[in-house]
């Protein structure tokens, strides 16, 4: 089956799509790549909050209360609404972290001054909405909690990455033939 990511995409070419079903207990197979970062198709030019809530379907109160540490392009973010996601943005999500520096990285936290100079700076101005990709990382508690949402949304993997992943995992899917090019992998977690 071929899947085409919408017409206006100048960034994401036509991709082969693969589907997979996964028992919840097998989810940890994906933790290493989610932790290292995966390419995810997205409509970019939107706010960070829109990306998380509207596109990745993460509940708003979860984003507000649980995802307390966010980086965009290695910069800690304080303002979900003022941060615009661009094509190729690197977005990293984490739960609350220990330590002074953990508290310092917290979104809008009391100790944010301690990281002055690396904080994400809000840029005002109109953004153009278009199809593209982001690089998404999940850390710690979020791996198990919202990993299924990300997997259901779909990951773009190199064929070799997919083969390597499937060889490590007990998941039910046909092994693709080795080759170059990318695939869109969609994974549904079953109870």
């Amino acid at each position: 089956m071929k899947h085409t990511i919408p017409e206006q995409s100048a960034v994401v070419p036509e991709l082969e799509t693969r589907g997979m079903h996964l028992a919840t207990g097998q989810l940890k197979t994906f933790f290493p790549i989610l932790q290292k970062g995966v390419m995810v198709p997205a409509t970019v030019g939107c706010t960070l909050k829109s990306l998380l809530c509207d596109q990745l379907a993460i509940p708003t109160d979860y984003v507000t209360d649980r995802i307390t540490t966010i980086f965009v392009n290695n910069r800690p973010v304080d303002d979900l609404e003022g941060t615009i996601i661009q094509d190729g943005s690197r977005v990293t999500l984490s739960a609350a972290m220990p330590g002074l520096v953990g508290a310092t990285m917290r979104r809008g936290g009391y100790y944010a001054a301690l990281r002055q100079g690396i904080s994400h700076i809000v840029e005002r101005g109109a953004a153009t909405s278009q199809r593209g990709t982001i690089r998404l990382k999940l850390f710690n508690l979020l791996l198990a909690e919202i990993g299924p949402l990300i997997l259901a949304h779909g990951l773009i993997l190199e064929q070799d990455e997919l083969i390597e992943l499937l060889e490590l995992s007990p998941v039910r899917a046909a092994r693709p033939a080795a080759g170059s090019g990318r695939v869109l992998l969609t994974v549904i977690c079953n109870e």
Binding site: T69, P76, S94, A95, A96, M97, P98, V101, M105
Partner: peptide, 25 residues
């Protein structure tokens, strides 16, 4: 509390490696 009740018991202080690396610190 999510740090003392969940994060630290699950991963210990080394949970900071990913975050500090991501921050470039």
């Amino acid at each position: 509390h999510p740090v003392t009740g969940e994060g630290l018991p699950a991963y210990g202080t080394n949970v900071l490696t990913n975050v500090l690396n991501e921050a470039g610190g």
